[in-house]
Structure formats: C-alpha cells, structure tokens
Design a protein around this nucleic acid. Structure first.
Lengths: 348, 348
DNA sequence: TTGTACGCGTTATCAA
DNA sequence: TTGATAACGCGTACAA
C-alpha cells in the first residue's frame, strides 16, 4: 500500500504549530524554538522572518508540549490555607506583583487549613513538574515533608521562620509577635489580659504561646483568661468570643486578639455593652488591617509583612530557578507593633 | 550499526510512566490508560493487576502528556479582577467548593481590574486548551470578546447579568441593587442622599446608575451628592471620602456606599465627628460582609450571592463540559436588602 | 549559527 | 476486551 493510500488522520487542535511557523519562515523548527527562548542566538535576519510568520499565523506556543519535552513546566505551585483570609490574599498579591513580566504561571492550591488536604494536593502539583513550589507554614505531615524533600525543585516555606527548613523560608516569628503585644499590654498597666483566638491553626497557637510566655513571666497567667475556638475567624465571632471571655473572667481589663477581625468584633461588643475602650478594657489585634488605624477608637495591632512575604518568596523562587541560591536561605521579615488609642491608658 | 549499538539516551524525569506500569502488569499501555479513564471497559482481572502495579511503582499520570495527546487540559481557567477584594475571594471559595472531587484543576488569573491585562492574559490561558473558562463581568474588549467567542470551550461570565452573553452567565443586576438601596433611603425619609464610590469599575458604575435612577425619579438628584474616586476601596478611604462629601454637601442626611468597606469607614468618621447614626446621617453599604450585622450601629447593606455565583459558575461549566447545556444560559441570582440600625429612622 | 532525528508520556485509530 | 502503531507539538543531542 502506497504512502498516499494510507489515510493519515491528524488529531491536532487545528491551530498553527512550531512546524507551520518554520515552514512559512523557511527555517527549521529548532530555529523557531530558539528564536522564542533565546533570541540572541538566532541571526537578526531569521528572527525577523520568524516573527513575521508568527504574527501572520497567530501562533501561540503550546505549554503542554513544552513541558513534556523539557520535563519542566513554567509553573510555580502555591499552596495556601485560605483565599478569603485577607492575610493570604495579600500574600498572593505580593506573589503576583513580584512575578513581573516573566512567562511563569502561578498555580494556586487551597488547603483549607488542612494538612491532609495539603498532602492530597501536593502530588497533583508535583505531577506537573513545577519550576518551584511555595507552601505555607512549617507543619507539614511526614508524607508531605518527604514529597517536598524530593520535589526536585526549589521550595519556599512562607509565613513563619523556625523548624527545619525544607529549602528556603520567608516569614516572621508568630511567637515573638504574640509576646510583644502581650508585653505591651502589661506595660500599660493591664493585669487581667485575655487571649481570644479563632481557627487556632499552628500560627495562632504560636501567638498564643507568646502570650502565655509573657503572662507567665509577669506572674499573670491564668487559663481562665484564654478563650479559643476552632471556628474560622470573623468579626461577629469576635463579639461572641468576647462575651464568652467575660463570663469566665468578668474582671478582664484587656484583650489580645488572635487577629484583627476578632479585635474589631470585640470593639463592637464593647460599644454595645457600654464598656469604655481603652479606659475599662484595652484591645489589641494582629496583622494590622487597614481599618485598625481608622476605627473609633483606633486599635493597636501588629503589622505583619504579608505582602512582602509574597514578594520575597517569589523572588527567592525565581532566583533559585535561575540557579542563584540566596545568601540567606531563611529570611525573617519581622513585624511592627502599632500602638493606638485602644491601648492608650495612663500607666497605673 | 546494530540497534543495540545505538546508544539511546533517555531524557525523562526518571519517574515511572504508563509504559512502566504496563510492563509490570503485563499489559499494553493503552489498557493502563483505559483503566485510568474508563475502568468499566477493562476486565476486573487486568484492572486489579494494573492498580497493583500503579501502587507498587507510585505512578502518577503526567497531565502535560495527557493534555498534549488529547488536545485538552483538565483545567478550568478563572479570570478575576482582584484577589484581595473579599467579594472575589468568596467567589473563588464557591468555585473551589463546587469543584468537589473531580480531577479538574483551577487556574486563576488576576486582571487587576484592567481589560488590557485581561486581553493579555487570555491567550496564555487559551494556549493550554482549558476545558472551560470563567471570566468576570461583561465589559470585555473587542479582542477579548473575539477570543472568547472562538475559545472552543464553555465560557461562563460571572458577577453580572445583561449585555450579550458569550455563552453562559451567572450574576445579578448591580443597577437594581443600587436602585433598591437608594429607594429604601428615600422611603425612610432621607432627601440629601450622597453616593460614595471607590474604584469605579463597571459594576460600581452600574450601581451608581441605579442610585441616579432612583434619585431622579424622586426629583432628588444632585451631582454634588456624588463623590467618587478611582482609588481602590478601603475602610480608611471611606473616612476620607465622607469628609470630602460633607464639604460639597454639608446637609447630607444619608450615604449609599459603593461597598461595605467604605460604609464602615463612613461610620467611623461619623463616630469621630460626633455625627449620630442614623439620627443625623443614615448609612448603607453593599455586599453585606459579616461585620455589617454586628457593627455598632449595625449597617444596612445589600446581601450579594457571591459565594453562590462561584458555585453555580463551576457547576454550569462542569455540566457544559459533560455536554449538558443548562436550561437557562443566563442565571440571575438576585440580591437581598438587609435593613439594619444605620437606616432605622422614623419616617418624617 | 542552523538543522536532523528522535524522545518526552499519553491518547486516538483501527484491527484483532 | 485488548493491543500495535502513529500522532500530539516541542526540546535535546549531536552533527554540520
């Protein structure tokens, strides 16, 4: 049977390919490929003809074919525990901004604060051979940890510093953050300082540890001052938890909230109950959302570098992809205590 | 030269492939492929041997190879204008939840409220041959519109209804939302009702149109009552815009805010300035974030179905991928006016 | 600087 | 129900 007789069936998408461009430009496919990736290595003449052909055909490179051939996708996988939490939304914004105009794509995964879900998600991400991986926190399961160790690509852990880094790390100490706020409340004369926390993910727990350390050192710790729940944080939950806290400790003279949503809720609850802030109860939050500075009264909080964490993480990842290892594999971006009206109390 | 003498070089990632599984199980590669995609069509016996081999090898399918061979990626592209805006974070949460346990992946793109960026991003998404596309709004550029028309996959436009649908649509009428709130303020006796808006994306503009329609119908419209800015919305910006609004209209007796962040800021500004809410100024927001119900006073707002929009969009997309066209290509999910203390004023 | 031949890992086609 | 073979579109190795 002659070749012509064999009814070859093409299965393609019908869109132009590298070969089509090469034909039109009268060059080899590899030259087109090179013109796309390393233009300097192709003569100006050919480059122009190739670009003209690309424009004429409306050619777009097929990333799947590239990933398959090069055993590496131009994708950076990002695993975060939440999308609705403003903190991670800001991290993602930082990542996007830090990305610049590179051809890299970001692929998000939402672990919903579950290490199990993270363990389930990671192989899916890995199966695409990402160029780098950004994961949240330092509390991975052993299986996840092993996958990360063998990922074969740069890995950046974000949000915290500490533990045993898989590779690189950007964050700050939540323990120190919690300790610092609590110490501030002690310094302004508060004695019955409550801790209100929601979700209680690993980072919340470390902020609680910081609170406890400061309280114990001052001889003020009392388990009855701690009110927590696994429920996701919200402003309304802050109201609710404050009521609960006042039940177990009616003499509360300050509250350190796990995050700003809760702090906002506590302020509203105080306003409704006619509790003067800061005269009768001081309030402090965590993260320093925009609204803390304009609330009435304005609320003391800890400014955390979440946007900067995203930017740094993506920069470190890109550098590592380019083969440039950072001088410091672990970057502590710190935090800043913002003292405001809600803790402005003349020291006793 | 004998075949053995040809020093074939394997370039792969080193990870097990479909062929490895086939060898171990003693079957052809295509049978393994089938066992993965359509298990019913493979005999129970072979299926078991294949699954055992997969487990033993720790085989994971290569999505790039699959996408290349089938000219279709198991990916749904999602284009949203913002990640930090709670509204879109909720939409994404709905999308994730609606996804269930399918093998589909979500690929996000952030257009930063720019139709230009959307036009730049879309070809990148299209180049992966996504199974479906979800895009925000109905105000695409002509070029974007053309690409969507020729995308060759289901397309869902979200957030709004109206205009000329590319394919499917889920949302609600922002015009009606704006009109309804404004009418409520008129109904409770307000006359000098200001509009405060930030960002002023197409949906904000349509809410403004709704405001204007209601005001004009009541013979109350006055351009001096409208205060807008292109700056992204925030609580602190709400404070600022309220001050500006009071300068051009000192007799303001109500404010309809573009969204809840601004409304919150207006409330704080009132508290600082000693302006009684709702006695001297009524406040209404848009979206009904959690905090509106617990603020002090609680704030009237329009509950928008953003989470449900995400869920519905992904469901419609999945159905369309499966070949089931929805009965209604355009779904209006409506909204709900939540009347609260901030507009609780005895009618004059 | 440019091209040829082939491999990447999977799926579609068609035959058995 | 199962399999051999070609095809998907691009990158790598090596030669020219």
């Amino acid at each position: 049977m002659g070749v012509e007789a064999r009814n070859r069936v093409r299965r393609g998408s019908g869109r132009p390919t590298l070969a089509d461009v090469a034909n039109l430009a009268g060059v080899g496919t590899i030259t087109v490929s090179r013109a796309l990736r390393e233009p300097e290595r192709v003569s100006v003449d050919l480059r122009q003809r190739i670009n003209a052909a690309i424009d004429k055909l409306g050619y777009v490179l097929n990333p799947n074919a590239r990933a398959l051939a090069s055993a590496r996708a131009d994708v950076i996988g990002v695993l975060v525990p939440s999308l609705t939490n403003n903190v991670f939304a800001e991290v993602l914004r930082g990542i996007h901004d830090g990305l610049g105009d590179t051809a890299l794509q970001i692929q998000f995964g939402n672990t919903h604060y579950s290490t199990q879900e993270e363990e389930r998600l990671l192989p899916v991400f890995l199966s695409q051979h990402p160029s780098a991986l950004i994961v949240s926190g330092i509390d991975q399961t052993p299986a996840t940890r092993r996958l990360l160790d063998e990922a074969g690509c740069p890995v950046v852990q974000i949000m915290e510093v500490g533990g045993d880094p898989v590779d690189m790390m950007v964050g700050f100490s939540h323990f120190e953050g919690g300790r610092t706020v609590t110490q501030h409340l002690i310094d302004v004369g508060c004695r019955r300082i409550g801790f209100i926390g929601a979700r209680m993910d690993p980072r919340s727990l470390r902020r609680l540890s910081g609170y406890r350390a400061a309280m114990e050192q001052a001889g003020l710790f009392d388990a009855g001052l701690v009110t927590t729940t696994a429920t996701p944080s919200s402003v309304s939950l802050g109201c609710e938890l404050f009521r609960r806290a006042r039940e177990s400790a009616p003499d509360l003279d300050a509250v350190f909230c796990n995050n700003d949503d809760l702090a906002m809720g506590v302020l509203f609850a105080c306003q409704r109950a006619g509790i003067a802030v800061p005269q009768r109860v001081c309030i402090a939050g965590f993260n320093d959302l925009d609204m803390m500075a304009v609330a009435c009264p304005s609320i003391t909080s800890v400014l955390t570098p979440r946007y900067e964490i995203g930017r740094r993480a993506i920069t470190m990842a890109q550098d590592a992809i380019a083969g440039e290892r950072p001088l410091e594999a672990v970057v502590d971006l710190g935090f800043e205590l913002k003292i405001r009206e809600s803790t402005d109390r003349p020291r006793c």
